[in-house]
Design a binder for these strands. Structure first.
Length: 476
RNA sequence: GGCCCCGUCGUCUAGUGGCCUAGGACGCCGCCCUCUCAAGGCGGAAGCGGCGGUUCGAACCCGCUCGGGGCUGCCA
């Protein structure tokens, strides 16, 4: 048995969305599970839509996710001589032929077919043109595509690991293009040839490609290749509208999740659970743990809908699993102040530690820590928190009482406890504490108050409380 | 239109003929804990698309039907 080789072969026509990332992940997981090789191959046969920026972006995202590849990236367009070579062999052997129909002619005939209520598709016009006609076309300077001659009868059947036997009548598949008039290869050709040349043993990809498998397999056979890779077609990840996620429809860029403060661990974990699951119900896992248990044979058949709510919950869980020093470094890029000199590392570390227990995203943590790194003058109380503060009974008295207490108490977590003030004025801490959170941290909900007060320092805390009193009287 | 694939709580899933009056997770609701928000604990509502078979017995097997998705391109 030859060594397992899988490949992730994205088209570099845009950013990597969750569907593509999941496909990459499943390939990576399987390679790691069996100790095989994970190949990255960029399928840029659509020259018009492929960009080098996209190639770079895909690599960046894969690296960020931790999906390291063992070979590549191979750039498919650099191999087009080989693709053309195979195409001419197929023409020579009669498996393919030149088609001189222009795009316009094709479109016209398609229209007619549709008008007549016929199934639209290539009509085989150039299938068997004689040499004289061919010479005329060439003399006219007409360009030619190379088309694959699909069988007229019989069935194409292959075994898919997740779906079982997949079979289709050859008569429903029209002759398809292998080479454009300029000699550039089409996906089917390049994909088939490269999989053969790179000795790919397992093809793990989206179900949207299931119908193309028949064509690719036909090319392989025409090339004289007898064996075929193991196919595993994964269910699609659907967007909110219930449609296939694509760059053209409701796609979600992985980079957006990174920028929103999601951990790569979370994306990997969540994506693995879209189309695959464990029988014991364990959900929170590291990439390594998943790789140990993952098998393409266990991939689900039905499509899944992407659910951001669960992703957010899971991110919080992964944040809690991180060591605090690790988390601090992950949060750092999200805190603008951390980029400046004189930044207070000690307080930052303390604050991240406090936030770790309650945050769901890195951005969330950065926001919760922010009050420590703005001046008292710059502290902004968000609108809804301010409205709540204004609506609270006896806010001014509450704030003033806190000032009095904090001016002379011990500066410890126990000492700055404001509950006695609140209760002394006849309020329930649960109901009134938001006033202090808002005045000191800028939000009604945030890091634990006593710890925050100690971290901020007496001078700042009192200044903020007084400023809130002043702002309050100006409002009323 | 033709062909292909799919169908378990709102969502992700476990389940491969009896262990299922269908289990877990997110979300939701209630209670507890509590200085806010979370986290945590406890409890709850919520599902096998439908109809026929096969069988002593069906979420699991078969047929039909309905629903969803994909492909049908000189995109991948």
């Amino acid at each position: 048995m030859s060594k397992t080789r899988v490949r992730f072969s994205p088209a570099p026509t845009g950013y990597l969305h969750v569907g593509g990332a999941r496909t990459a992940l499943f390939n990576w997981l399987y390679a790691r599970h069996v100790g095989g090789t994970f190949v990255l191959r960029v399928e840029d046969t659509d020259v018009g839509r492929s960009t080098t920026e996209s190639v770079e972006q895909i690599q960046n995202v894969l690296s960020w996710l931790g999906l390291n590849w063992d070979e590549g990236p191979y750039i498919q367009s650099q191999n087009s001589n080989r693709h053309r070579e195979v195409a001419s062999q197929l023409v020579a052997s009669g498996h393919a032929y030149e088609c001189f129909c222009t795009k316009e002619e094709l479109d016209q005939r398609l229209e007619i077919q549709r008008g007549a209520g016929l199934a639209p598709g290539y009509d085989g016009q150039c299938r068997d043109i004689d040499e004289a006609t061919r010479a005329t076309f060439v003399a006219e300077g007409r360009g030619a595509t190379v088309r694959f001659r699909t069988p007229d009868s019989g069935r194409s059947t292959f075994i898919d690991v997740v779906r079982g036997e997949v079979s289709v009548e050859w008569s429903t598949i029209r002759d398809f293009v292998l080479l454009r008039p300029d000699g550039s290869p089409i996906f089917y050709l390049a994909n088939a040839v490269d999989d053969v040349d790179m000795a790919i043993t397992h093809v793990v990809r989206g179900e949207d490609l299931i119908d193309t498998t028949h064509r690719v397999l036909a090319i392989r056979h025409a090339m004289g290749v007898d064996d075929q890779p193991v196919y595993a077609h994964c269910p699609l990840i659907l967007g909110p509208g219930g449609h296939k996620l694509s760059k053209r429809y409701g796609a979600v860029n992985i980079e957006d999740f990174r920028d929103a403060g999601y951990l790569p661990e979370t994306l990997v974990n969540y994506l693995a659970l879209l189309g695959w699951g464990t029988s014991d119900g364990v959900e929170l896992m590291s990439a390594i743990q998943i790789a140990e248990r993952f098998d393409i044979a266990d991939i689900n058949r039905s499509s899944a809908t992407f659910d951001g709510t669960k992703l957010e919950w899971m991110n919080g869980e992964h944040i809690r699993m991180l060591s605090t020093p690790d988390l601090i470094e992950r949060v750092r890029p999200f805190v603008a102040a951390a980029q400046t000199k004189g930044f207070d590392e000690i307080r930052f570390a303390e604050a991240v530690g406090l936030a770790q227990a309650r945050a769901t995203t890195l951005v969330h943590i950065a926001n919760q820590c922010e009050f420590l790194f703005v001046t008292d003058e710059d502290l902004a109380i968000d609108d809804s928190s301010w409205e709540r503060l204004v609506a609270q009974d006896g806010t001014a008295a509450l704030l003033e009482s806190a000032v009095q207490h904090l001016e002379r108490c011990d500066w410890t977590v126990e000492g700055v406890d404001l509950r006695p003030c609140v209760e002394g004025l006849g309020h329930k801490p649960r109901k009134a504490m938001h006033v202090f959170y808002s005045a000191i941290e800028g939000h009604a909900a945030g890091l634990p108050l006593w710890e925050s007060i100690v971290l901020l320092g007496r001078e700042s805390v009192i200044a903020r409380l007084k400023s809130a009193v002043a702002k309050l009287s100006a409002t009323v």
